[in-house]
């Protein structure tokens, strides 16, 4: 309560950090554009090379915006899951929701060649891929919710998430055995994750999904705070648990499912960012945490994307690998330093 001013300053600093990361992200890339050139390209100044404007507006800015949306959404969905499932290790990746999306994508890309070669032609495009991935992730989320209703043990939930990962891996390897190399490659590229392939119109669709998810989350802030006590306590505080649960689950599904559909599976952002945010803000109050994880997630994703770009080289690393390399040590460090993970 007395800390409101402190939280506001921290949040403001984070926002500044976001702007810095955003500018850094769009001024670095495979084509070397001087910093001044980038600024001129954005604000319409004189340019030494006209292709710079094209690169900045049609490649770098959409990519940076996607990275921001992906970071915001994954971090928020991680926070929602950790509170809803009372589990510090919950996140879209750990609970198998990303695996569900992968399964949907794998079945669409590779399954179509297997089952009907006639329909396969022209069936696999960005929209159908997005739909298949979203369906897959929603399906897994529903299973996780049903299981969490029947089994109160939080450990069991994580094991079920792991099992979904195994099932996905198994089905993918079966499919890849029968499918042709081209399709397999298409799937593997999708599973690397990418924030660079979205057009402005796709970006708008992703933005709509994320905004919906964020609005639902903001409306759930009070119930999320009550859930920190446990469900029975939350109910005794006058919270309509059934409605709140649905709201939170739909928000999670929209955020995690939508992002995986458009950007592929991206690991660890959802798990690590809420913990990192709690480190800075030292609070459990979702009125502070929700805006903070949004900004923090965006920053981390921008940084990972900048690294994945390998500035000044023509190579691009898979973003999923970078987030894992950055995220996994963070989780280990948190565990080792605090001895146990709490949320």
């Amino acid at each position: 309560m007395e800390n409101t001013a402190k939280y506001k300053t921290s949040l403001l600093l984070l926002l500044l950090g976001l702007i810095v990361c955003f500018v850094a992200n769009i001024s670095l890339g495979s084509v070397t554009i001087p910093f001044k050139g980038t600024l001129n390209a954005i604000f319409g100044g004189e340019l030494a090379n006209d292709s710079w404007r094209y690169i900045v507006w049609n490649y770098r800015i959409p990519k940076a915006c996607t990275a921001i949306l992906v970071g915001c959404g994954l971090a928020l969905s991680g926070l929602l899951m950790q509170t809803l499932f009372k589990n510090p290790l919950a996140g879209p990746f750990v609970l198998g929701i990303s695996s569900g999306a992968s399964l949907g994508a794998a079945l669409l890309i590779m399954g179509t060649t297997l089952f009907s070669s006639v329909f396969a032609i022209g069936l696999v495009n960005d929209v159908s891929l997005a739909i298949a991935a979203s369906l897959g992730s929603f399906l897994v989320l529903l299973v996780v919710v049903v299981v969490s209703y029947r089994i109160k043990d939080t450990m069991a939930l994580l094991i079920i998430g792991l099992m979904f990962g195994s099932i996905t891996a198994a089905i993918v390897s079966v499919l890849s055995y029968f499918t042709d190399a081209e399709k397999l490659q298409q799937y593997i590229y999708w599973s690397f994750g990418s924030v660079g392939n979205l057009s402005w119109s796709q970006l708008l669709l992703l933005l709509t999904i994320i905004v919906l998810g964020v609005v639902l989350s903001i409306l759930s802030i009070k119930s999320l705070n009550a859930l920190l006590l446990g469900e029975n306590y939350a109910r005794s505080l006058g919270i309509n648990m059934k409605r709140s649960r649905y709201k939170i689950i739909i928000a999670t599904g929209l955020l995690a499912g939508g992002i995986t559909a458009f950007a592929g599976p991206i690991a660890f952002i959802g798990l690590a960012v809420p913990h990192l945010t709690r480190q800075i803000f030292n609070t459990t109050d979702h009125r502070v945490l929700v805006p903070a994880v949004l900004v923090y997630g965006a920053i981390l994703m921008l940084i990972c994307d900048t690294i994945a770009q390998l500035p000044s080289s023509a190579n691009v690393l898979p973003i999923n690998a970078i987030t894992s390399i950055v995220g996994a040590p963070v989780v280990i460090w948190l565990l080792v330093r605090k001895k146990k993970m709490i949320f």
Partner: peptide, 10 residues
């Protein structure tokens, strides 16, 4: 209640 708090980080 006797049930443990969901979050002891409060």
């Amino acid at each position: 209640l006797t049930e443990p708090l969901a979050s002891k980080n409060l």
